[in-house]
Design a binder for these strands. Sequence first.
RNA 1: GGCGAUGUGGCCGAGAGGUCUAAGGCAACGGUCUGCAAAACCGUCUAUCAUCGGUUCGAAUCCGAUCAUCGCCUCCA
Length: 497
Amino acid sequence: MATPAPFRLYNTLTKQTEPFVPLQEGAVSLYVCGMTVYDHIHIGHGRAMVAFDAFVRYLRHRGWAVRFVRNFTDIDDKIIRRALERGEEPLALAQRYIDAFHEDTDALGLARPDVEPRVSTSMEAILHMTEHLIAKGHAYEADGSVWFSVQSFPEYGKLSRQRVDELRSADEESGKRHPADFALWKACKPGEPTWPSPWGQGRPGWHIECSAMSREQLGAQIDIHGGGLDLVFPHHENEVAQSECASGEPFARYWMHNGLITMASGQKMGKSLGNVFNIREALAVFPAEALRLYLLQNHYRTALPWSETSLTEALSMLARLYEAKEVAGQLAREPGEAQESPAAAAQALGEDAAAALALAEGFEARLYGALDEDFNTAQALALAFELARAVNRLAGHKRAKRRAGPIAALALAAFERFSAALHLLGAAPGEFTEEVKRKRLAPLGLTAEEVEGLLAARAAARAAKDWAESDRLRDLLDARGVAVMDTPAGAEWRVKL
RNA sequence: GGCGAUGUGGCCGAGAGGUCUAAGGCAACGGUCUGCAAAACCGUCUAUCAUCGGUUCGAAUCCGAUCAUCGCCUCCA
């Protein structure tokens, strides 16, 4: 395998974009905080999932051996509460939502992580780390619970730049020595699932799981730890404290945080705010790629606004790219002048062709340049659109069919490079428009058969040059959201965006 | 109260101090195409880069202040 390509990454720990230096040559160990599984995933989760999926795929594309771990939190207050409401076993409820999660992320086209550890099956590692922290004097037991002592770790706060004494104190809980101390192990309460421990029956606290599972799967030190920006404090801060106190060495070298989805009001989308839009609902009426494009169109660290039209806009964008790619493919397949070099073709066709050639040839370097600099997918996308316009212009040339082939072939290769890097735009020609038709028709309350039936009637009217009837049928379809396009080969249709 | 982030055209949004009179997208408008359309394509427009001050030969980019918005400090991707 070729030497992996270097890249730079913004590190929350240092607040700087830094060259990535791996612990092990050619390898990247990545731990991303996953879901607490008590509900379906929404667009906000989708952003984190897609951002890291694209990131991992890109690193692999560039030659890195990535080991990607993402956990499930399947023991937690909210799971227990919801299970209680529904009269279900908490772990059974969690399992249902893990299954739903897999259905949704598979449908979204995400690659599964190498390992997806769960709290309920990582108990040994959690207990082990907790005991170790007590032994080293960083944690203490009180009434069957175990607390981490933030004052035992002078560097506490270094990730989020919080100072322990400046924090707003949360509810006082019994047994804590300092308000900022947090639970590693919670003594059992009636009706909750429990596990045996040296301190009696109980269950793990929230933060310890990620430290324990990360250590178990990837070792004491990892390259990159990822998650949503809203996890920086306290979750990731606490992970740093636990992991570094336990091992005595630095935990994650790079902390990578994705920005949140925000509503028109500017507020974030969040389960607790009740303003979520589920991935499942979105995928029922939009192709997965439209979501992926929407979620990758901004830089991963900035807030991404959500609106009613976000996905239709993404769909428009995607359609434009797919069409340009298809144009490039068609041109590339034209017989044209035999064996002409791209440069000769550009020479013959003039300025637009030369511009297209230059773009196609420089595409890869610019694409990698954008993505290697803190994974700037927004910039990468802009390149694809520039290429699209250049291809369309090229195709508009009078002699394009005869001579643009060699240039179009390079453009097509550039599009394919883009697909390989970001896992976008990879569907076969026509596949995408079919999926759009299928999914967009449903919310209109129409079936393909109905549309085809009306079009057949219209074709008859057109054959008789009955323009009034033809237009009436077209207007009818138009009013219901279907655009009709007459082509030399007959009428085609698509769902209006 | 503490910590942090952001403020670029109608909207979204990228911008490693000079090539930025600012990429790209969406929308709008004009043209090509068409029986007329639609779709598609091509083209066009709108930016004193929040405000004020400073550093610099030179700033959207660095510094300071102000204003505004948002996130975290309780569960949260």
